[in-house]
Design a binder for these strands. Structure first.
Lengths: 343, 343
DNA sequence: CGTTAGCACTCATTTAAGTCGAGTGCTAAT
DNA sequence: ATTAGCACTCGACTTAAATGAGTGCTAACG
């Protein structure tokens, strides 16, 4: 048996209706919903076929049908093809203020949440390279040195280093020059033991400080690994009864609070379909506790190797159309942000 | 009518039992629960009195009694008096790693959440003074200057400033000296227009840069105002049926995600009872959506004018004893952290 | 006079039975 | 191939009765 055109139309009508109502949909409804002018009996026959094909299921005998994961998948795939509109007015809101990165991402998450009524997440961009761009030591007071570390993509980190004895200005200058000359442009992997030893030798009696600085650099960059994730709209899940029974809601909220779990959504998109939007439906989700949800994600590029992720999490009956649209908009927005941010 | 000793005992037994079970408690239960050896009938008489006094209420006729807000209040007040144990092993966990401030606070929140099974919050310490401690401009590349701003309490902020033309080393040095000489030790309020004008004059052709820097400083410090709040254990509310119906849970989760609302819990403690632990029960809460909860908060001092808040939010029938204990421990931990962090 | 046993009464909760209706599958007619 | 008709299913809702925890009151007791 094949999915002919009529079956397709009926299937789409069923899914569409279910997305709106959240209720199982019966043959009678479809009989009127479509412009096919078919009686409910005919629809019933077709529905039986569609069920046999695995696109829809009955939650129980003598109830209407609801889409199976396969059904959703079919619907999403079809939709993705013809999806090409865009450029909504969201852009302006996002650009309104060229704020600091974290504020911007927070806002992006919120924007998506408000716009779609689902839970959303945005990860800070992370460089796969972690190239050191700039390093600056300053004497804060007698026993503290402030190290400012800038890595590619203008991610800035600070560390305070304790020193036993105060260093004079000249020494500070020397150390700064020494470090910047040798380390700038190197990735963290390239800063190996040999290089460190050489530097320490050049620094003479200040070798220990060099070591401390480099340790701090390494740790700071590494710290960036457990990356920031901004979420918003977690409480939207309460708008969907199928997600808000106690156990499920608790699990979901937990995932959104811990954020640790959400990292599983990252990086899958890396190798294969470049820059594609991914849709996980139900059991397809890499996160077990979200098997009653659908998840739509996309990566964004933040210039030169920096990449982050945005995602929307909602019930399986989410408005895929809108969600994909929103994701695309935000994604392209973030994609172009880097140049903007850099001028 | 007065609260004699027997009534007090009965009241405490009622509350204690209700805290454990979450169910209205009847006379029969109390009759056995206490060592008073009284029949249920006697208890009933006493309960009628207690109800008349406003310490307990009946959710409906012919159900057991539950504590009123006033009842909780009585219980908490009594408990606070005799509460003096402390020094749990929590300390070690918290000290285990002298991590960066935000990690530490996050951990503190989590620790409390795990320990108590309630929702918790920790705000980053905020200085009431905002004194500029140290300022450093560095040339990052031709068109960008990195400004590092350290304010009292070792809060470090970065800003990137765009400049039209590149500045040479000498100029940078001059600017740094100029700025540090005149601004260090001043609060943001003290950096007024007169001072700025004077500085600009001294900077000559680089006046505009001075202005940008000071703007950045002002904005950065101000940005600190919408302070960080770390939360944990929000999903614990699902463990308490009285909080997890859809509407309430949604409201609570929302408060914890938005965090904006939580700021209302801050600063009340400021003027009056110094360093006291505050307990808001039910309607006493400054946050409307939390009127079914109890909230326990405390301020902690982070050295020299920096102060933050920790709080635990749970159902009215929370284990006040444990919560106050936990809060005290964490508070004293954070109080002493500053010295630790500074050595 | 405080305490207690006894008892009638209340009322949320649970259980069972019954009704309703949306929806199905099948068959026969068009 | 399509449709009308009909018996059947089964969850959802309604109603009624049973249950039982708990109360308030009264009368008896030490």
């Amino acid at each position: 048996m094949e999915l002919d055109e009529r079956k397709t139309k009926i299937l789409q009508a069923i899914i569409k209706n279910y997305l709106e109502t959240g209720e199982p949909v019966g043959s009678r409804t479809i009989s009127k919903y479509t412009d096919l002018n078919l009686s409910s009996a005919t629809i019933r026959n077709e529905m039986a076929d569609l069920e046999e094909l695995g696109f829809i299921v009955q939650p129980h005998t003598s109830a209407g049908r609801i889409p199976s994961d396969k059904g959703y998948r079919f619907y999403v795939d079809a939709m993705m093809l013809e999806h090409e509109k865009e450029v909504e007015q969201l852009k302006d809101v996002l650009l309104e203020k060229e704020e600091k990165l974290d504020h911007m991402l927070k806002q992006a998450a919120k924007l998506m949440a408000v716009n779609t009524n689902y839970a959303t997440m945005v990860t800070a961009p992370r460089s796969s390279k972690n190239v050191l761009k700039f390093l600056q030591l300053s004497r804060m007071d007698a026993s503290h040195i402030l190290a400012v570390i800038v890595i590619e993509g203008n991610v800035i980190k600070n560390t305070v280093i304790d020193v036993a004895e105060s260093l004079n200005d000249e020494t500070m200058l020397k150390l700064n020059i020494l470090l910047n000359t040798h380390l700038n442009g190197l990735s963290v992997e390239e800063i190996n033991l040999g290089l460190i030893t050489a530097l320490k030798q050049q620094a003479g009696m200040y070798g220990p400080i060099i070591e401390e600085v480099i340790d701090a650099v390494a740790e700071t960059i590494k710290e960036d690994e457990d990356l920031e994730i901004y979420t918003s709209g977690a409480n939207n899940i309460f708008k969907y009864p199928e997600l808000s029974d106690n156990q499920k809601a608790s699990d979901l909220i937990n995932a959104f609070e811990e954020k640790q779990l959400l990292t599983q959504l990252i990086d899958d998109t890396d190798s294969e379909g470049r820059n594609e939007i991914k849709v996980y439906i139900g059991e397809e989700s890499p996160i077990q506790t979200m098997k009653d949800c659908s998840i739509v994600t996309a990566n964004y590029e933040f210039g030169d190797g920096m990449r982050g992720m945005i995602g929307i999490i909602g019930p399986k009956r989410m408005d895929y159309d809108k969600v994909v649209g929103t994701i695309k908009t935000i994604k392209s927005q973030l994609d172009t942000m880097y140049k903007k941010d850099d001028n």
